[in-house]
Structure formats: C-alpha cells, structure tokens
Simulated assay, not measured.
Amino acid sequence: MNDLALLGIGLLTGVTTVLFGFGGGFVAVPVVVWADAVLGADAMRVATATSALVMVVNAGFATAVTPRRVLAALRGNGPLLLLLAAGGGAGALATRHAPPGLVRWAFVAYVALTIVDLLLRPGFLRPRAPETTRDAPRPLPAVVGAPVGAVAAFLGVGGSVMTVPAMRRAGHTMHVATALANPLTLAVALPAAVVLLGGAEAPAPAHTHVHLVGLVDLRAAAALLLGALPVITVLRRRPPRIPDRIYAWTYIALLGAVTVAMVLSH
C-alpha cells in the first residue's frame, strides 16, 4: 500500500474521529495490517501499536477543538480517566507479549459481539426516553475505566466502541457521545502509545519499506495523520447535521465494515 493510499485512508480516519469518536483506531488497524503484510504474523502487533499513536494525535487534536460546553459533561470524571489510562498501559503491555493471531481474532470477535449487542439490546438504536424533561444523562461509573482501557489498548481500538454505546445508553445523543469519546480515547491511547513505542524489539527480518520505532510504523502513522488532521479541523468547525437514528445505524454499519476488512486481511 503506497503513501498516497495511506493518505487517502487518513482522510477517512479524520471523518471517523469526528463523527464516531474512533480516533482512527478501527480504520488504522486493518489498514496497517494490509500495508505491512510483509511482516507476516507480526503485522497485527505493528498495526495495534501504530493505531495507538495515530489515536493519540487524532483524539488529542479533536478534543482540543471540541466546544468546552460539550466537554463539560466530563467534569468530575477524573477517576474514570485515570483508570482508563491505567488499563490502557496494561493492555498495551499484554499486546507486546500476546500471540499476533490471538489479537487479530480477539479484535474480530469483540467487534462482532458489539454489533450484535447494539442491534438486540435496547438503548442504542432505541435510546431510553427520559422520565422527566429534567433528567440529565448519567455519568459513566469510574469502575469501568480499567477493563475498558485494557481491552481497548490490547485490541488497538481506543475504547470508543465501548464508551459510545455506554454514553448513548446513559442518555446522550450520538453527537455528544461521539464527541466525548475523543478525550476518553486519549486517556487510553496515550499510555498505550508510550508502552508500545519504547522497549519493544522491531519484528525481524527487517524490510526496507517498513520504518519501525518499537512496534510503531512511523511511515504509515505519518501518512494517516497527514490525511486526518485537516479533516478533523473542518468537520469540528462545520459538523454535518445527521438525524440521531441514522447516525446510530451508520455507527453500526462502520463496525461491520471494519470486521469484514479484518477477516479479509487474514
């Protein structure tokens, strides 16, 4: 996969970061697996690590340009953010030592189960109706931070696939839930990227077109970010108006597309 193709897919990661809170993880993982297929089984470990770095930059930038009134919903969630970060570091350590095949199929299984859950369990496509007009969305419990962070970093998905449905069921609209997913993704991805950038040996044998620092493919990460950041800027300033139910269905459709891409990349 050449740099132009990676740049084009970077544009898509920018769209998914703003519209779905993914930070690029769900798109970046299968793309880097394809781009670095020459690494064989190690391609999945490199993809997970590269995804973590891409998510740090994308989610951090998206958070910085999100309106303060939206981010205010996370006030008082310091313990949640700390536990997400702790889980993210632990999950990244597990990724460094896990068999590549395990990470790949765990990714596919988790996303597939999430799709089934979103389709069958009330609260995502059919959000709860408030009992009164004064009902406010419920905060996410801090106790979920560590397991969400660990699973998200282990799979390279950033956590949005768990936090967006949870916030949706807590009473948030899709627009708010996906916006808040970016700072939560940043809390997971930052410690994960630090763990995966340092102290890990690059897969052998080395290949001239794969430029690794630790387990991160810097060439792929740079191309993806170059495409993503301008899109994030534009869409944050002029967000599209999408009806809430269509927004939710599109979220599920994207999860399905990524699952298929991961299966076909095997």
Results as ranks from 00 to 15, higher is better:
Leu184Trp: 03
Leu12Val: 15
Gly14Val: 03
Val161Arg: 00
Pro183Glu: 03
Gly171Asp: 03
Ala204Gly: 10
Leu212Tyr: 08
Pro191His: 03
Ala5Thr: 15
Met162Phe: 14
Val54Gln: 08
Ala177Arg: 04
Asn2His: 04
Val56Tyr: 03
Arg126Gly: 02
Val210Leu: 10
Gly40Thr: 07
Trp34Cys: 10
Gly25Asp: 05
Thr66Ile: 09
Gly24Trp: 01
Val148Thr: 10
Ala35Met: 06
Ala52Asp: 03
Ala170Asp: 04
Val108Lys: 09
Asp244Cys: 10
Arg134Cys: 00
Phe26His: 06
Ala73Gln: 11
Gly199Pro: 07
Leu11Ile: 14
Pro203Gln: 12
Pro183Arg: 01
Leu235Tyr: 03
His97Gln: 15
Pro127Thr: 09
Ala73Trp: 13
Pro141Gln: 02
Gly101Arg: 12
Leu71Ile: 14
Ala179Leu: 07
Ala106Val: 11
Ala181Met: 07
Gly214Pro: 10
Arg237Val: 03
Thr13Lys: 02
Val111Tyr: 00
Leu215Tyr: 12
Val148Gln: 03
Val15His: 00
Ala206Val: 15
Gly89Ile: 06
Thr173Ile: 04
Gly171Tyr: 06
Ile246His: 08
Ala253Gly: 13
Val103Asn: 06
Asp217Trp: 15
Val116Cys: 08
Phe26Ser: 13
Pro127Lys: 01
Thr233Asp: 00
Leu80Lys: 03
Thr250Lys: 02
Leu82Lys: 07
Val27Glu: 01
Val161Phe: 00
Glu201Phe: 05
Ala177Phe: 04
Val188His: 06
Val38Gln: 14
Glu131His: 10
Asp217His: 15
Val216Arg: 08
Gly87Arg: 02
Leu53His: 09
Arg236Asn: 09
Ala261Tyr: 07
Pro79Gly: 10
Ile252Ala: 03
Leu118Pro: 04
Val188Tyr: 05
Ala72Gln: 14
His207Pro: 04
Tyr247Val: 08
Ile9Leu: 15
Val108Cys: 11
Gly23Asp: 06
Pro141Trp: 00
Arg219Glu: 06
Leu11Phe: 12
Pro183Cys: 00
Ala72Met: 13
Arg134Met: 12
Gly91Tyr: 06
Arg241Lys: 11
Leu235Met: 13
Val194Leu: 15
Ala49Lys: 05
Pro137Thr: 04
Ala43His: 07
Met162His: 01
Val210Pro: 05
Val263Tyr: 10
Ala146Asp: 01
Leu118Ser: 07
Phe20Asp: 00
Leu235Gln: 02
Leu53Ser: 13
Ala192Asn: 09
Thr233Gln: 02
Thr66Ser: 08
Pro79Cys: 04
Leu118Asp: 03
Phe26Val: 12
Leu254Ala: 08
Ala72Tyr: 12
Val38Cys: 09
Arg236Met: 11
Ile9Gly: 02
Ala204Leu: 14
Gly145Phe: 05
Ala37Ser: 15
Val46Leu: 08
Gly76Phe: 11
Trp105Lys: 09
His97Ala: 14
Leu74Met: 14
Gly25Asn: 03
Arg104Met: 13
Ala94Met: 15
Met262Trp: 01
Pro239Thr: 13
Ala28Val: 13
His175Pro: 01
Val27Trp: 01
Arg169Cys: 09
Ala47Met: 09
Pro30Asn: 12
Ala222Tyr: 12
Ser160Trp: 00
Leu6Gln: 06
Val260Asp: 07
Gly256His: 07
Arg168Gln: 14
Ala98Lys: 05
Asn58Arg: 04
Val70Cys: 10
